[in-house]
């Protein structure tokens, strides 16, 4: 029995091919002696030498240690902090105090914050999808020989600081900004149009920040579609629009969904954009965390709210993974 039979012998270096065959022979011998199907998985694992079994862990160790130190442990600390008691004036003490969680569950202010965050993030995501899909389609279908240049242009804004990119909107949307100044110069308006420090400017700022994520995800998905399918649809009598609707769009939906997930999660976790471009009532849940930690020095409540945000966004990612598979995002990032 040769497990590697399906592999193309020519596609592998000889040494690697021989190693695979060696492992396969060991599997075959063990399975022949103990052919119970439920034991096959254990047999395959046992057939690897100790060194072979350790190798993936050794390779993963730096990443796992980094993740544990920089993400898992801080999250555990944050979670335990949510049970501390806030004593006032910036002081707190360790305890098993449920008051912070009780306050979150019973206080409508926080619930409104979640609703407002979900609403603004959803609007941003839909706008990104509507604007990002045509752009990604144009790039993917372009016959331009230097397509990489289009993609480079797409990620060019990432070379500039996020804060500076956000601040730049003040000089575009402001009363003395580029748009109002142009409209006044053209004589189209006499009084400046208020475009800054409201929900619209917050959403605009977030679209500016998130649109490349959407375009890249959709582009990867569109690039993976076999063009022959569209040609076949056209040959069978579809119009260009029908071919797009029946073939291209359904096949690109996973990329669109991955882009939507990224945009929604990043938008919902944002707090700088509302701080710079928002008015008094344009805030997201992240701003409530900021207030609790930075303004009130109430770290236990800040930790509680941070955990809430983490759980909610994690739940959204989990639901997405259940129905769409997070592998779409990995695929998008790996291509």
């Amino acid at each position: 029995m040769r497990v590697t039979r399906a592999l193309n012998e020519k596609s592998l270096p000889i040494i690697r091919y021989q190693q695979l065959n060696c492992i396969a022979d060991r599997f075959a011998a063990r399975i022949a002696n103990n052919a119970s199907p439920k034991n096959i998985k254990n047999i395959m694992s046992d057939a690897l030498t100790v060194a072979e079994r350790r190798r993936p862990w050794l390779l993963l160790a730096p990443t796992l240690i980094t993740l544990a130190v920089l993400m898992v442990i801080p999250m555990i600390i944050m979670f335990t902090y949510s049970f501390h008691v806030y004593l006032g004036n910036g002081r707190d003490q360790p305890d098993f105090y449920l008051g912070n969680w009780a306050e979150f569950f019973t206080d409508g202010y926080y619930h409104y914050g979640i609703w407002q965050t979900a609403r603004i993030a959803a609007i941003t995501t839909v706008m990104c999808a509507l604007m990002g899909y045509p752009a990604a389609y144009c790039i993917a279908m372009s016959r331009f020989r230097r397509k990489w240049m289009l993609l480079l242009l797409l990620i060019l804004p990432f070379w500039i600081s996020f804060i500076i990119r956000t601040l730049s909107w003040i000089h575009i949307l402001g009363e003395q900004g580029a748009i109002n100044a142009t409209l006044r110069w053209l004589g189209l308006i006499s009084e400046p149009i208020p475009m800054l420090y409201n929900e619209g400017s917050v959403i605009m700022g977030m679209i500016h920040f998130l649109l490349p994520y959407m375009i890249l995800n959709v582009y990867v998905s569109l690039e993976g579609i076999d063009r022959n399918l569209v040609s076949a649809a056209r040959t069978l009598g579809c119009t260009a629009w029908q071919a797009f609707r029946e073939v291209t769009l359904p096949l690109s939906l996973p990329g669109l969904a991955a882009g939507c997930l990224l945009c929604f999660v990043l938008a919902a976790g944002s707090y700088v954009t509302p701080l710079i471009l928002g008015g008094p009532s344009n805030f997201l849940f992240g701003n409530l965390v900021f207030d609790a930690v930075m303004a009130e020095l109430n770290w236990p409540m800040g930790a509680t709210l941070s955990m809430v945000l983490l759980i909610l966004l994690g739940a959204i990612a989990a639901i997405y993974s259940r129905y769409m598979g997070l592998s779409r995002i990995y695929k998008g990032l790996s291509r």
């Binding site: 202010y109 914050g113 008094p280 009532s281 701003n287 109430n298």
Partner: peptide
């Protein structure tokens, strides 16, 4: 002011956001 800081800071943050 120190005696009222916590209570007023929390209330102000809420009012600033529309509460």
């Amino acid at each position: 002011w120190a005696a009222h800081f916590d209570e007023w800071e929390k209330q102000w943050n809420r009012i600033a956001k529309g509460a």
